[in-house]
């Protein structure tokens, strides 16, 4: 598949494309997970005096929308989605410092980890990578994460979202331990707490006082975008 794409690769010189064509090409390149091309395209647009926020919005974020749709429809498989996430990351690597400079709001930031006592990380990794694909900055704390580790990371990175994963009925309740600690440290309201993992459900989310439970990583991306947007709207 990638081979076919590569065959014609020489034919296109990104720098020669008009803005709208380039953006469209970047949408396709994102879709096809071509990280180098995305980095190149991002740079070209910046060189053409596009602001980093505009590049992010027009070339990258809107290009990723179709990825979500096609994943849901079973057109894109997970390894492909992760390729697109990788391409997105390549663009973000260039844009992030610039966005910070102009004080533009980044898409969002998430700290994620599998809770204490639990080593299941496939789902957590997927959720993290998909979030990166949507332009979020993701700090992954790995597995077996203690409440102290969560708190330290939250203080250090000041994320919009705390994501917790658990696959065991025995470890799920630890999420409540973390949330309670957030409350007692007065940090709870600064965060969107998002939880996931196969044995969880909505009822459990309510019981532990998390903000949202997401059944899968694709939903998580949608919900995260929405909730971060809402919070910002309220804040301003």
């Amino acid at each position: 598949m990638t081979q076919e794409v590569n065959e014609t690769e020489e034919d296109i010189i990104l720098a020669e494309l008009a803005d709208d064509e380039l953006v469209e090409q970047m949408h396709d390149d994102l879709y096809d997970g071509l990280a180098d091309e995305i980095a190149e395209g991002t740079q070209i647009l910046l060189d053409r005096d596009w602001g980093p926020d505009k590049v992010l919005e027009k070339a990258l974020v809107s290009g990723m929308n179709i990825v979500g749709v096609d994943f849901r429809d079973g057109i894109l498989f997970i390894p492909e989605v992760l390729q697109t996430a990788n391409a997105m990351k390549a663009g973000m690597a260039i844009l992030s410092p610039l966005l910070a400079e102009i004080g533009a709001e980044p898409v969002g930031k998430m700290v994620i980890g599998t809770v204490k006592g639990d080593i299941h990380d496939i789902g957590k990794n997927l959720a993290g990578m998909m979030m990166e694909g949507a332009g979020f900055e993701v700090i992954d704390l790995g597995v077996n994460t203690l409440v102290e580790d969560y708190i330290t990371a939250l203080n250090e990175h000041k994320p919009d979202i705390l994501g917790m994963s658990a696959l065991l009925t025995t470890t799920m309740p630890y999420m409540k331990v973390v949330i309670d600690e957030l409350k007692s440290q007065g940090m709870r309201d600064d965060l969107i707490v998002m939880v996931g993992g196969a044995p969880l459900n909505e009822e459990f989310r309510k019981a532990i006082g998390a903000d949202t439970y997401c059944r899968d990583a694709a939903t998580a991306v949608e919900v995260a975008k929405k909730m971060v947007g809402e919070r910002r709207a309220i804040a301003t």
Binding site: M1, E4, V5, E7, T8, E9, D11, I12, L17, A18, D20, E21, E24, Q25, H27, D28, D29, Y31, D32, I66, V69, D70, G74, I75, L76
Partner: peptide, 27 residues
């Protein structure tokens, strides 16, 4: 795939094979 080049809907320029449309066709 290669017999059916993908035309940009806005401009008339060739683009790289790929993107959603191509992938859908291939799947």
């Amino acid at each position: 795939m290669s017999e059916s080049p993908n035309f940009s809907p806005t401009a008339g320029t060739y683009r790289r094979e790929g993107g959603s449309a191509a992938r859908r066709a291939r799947r």
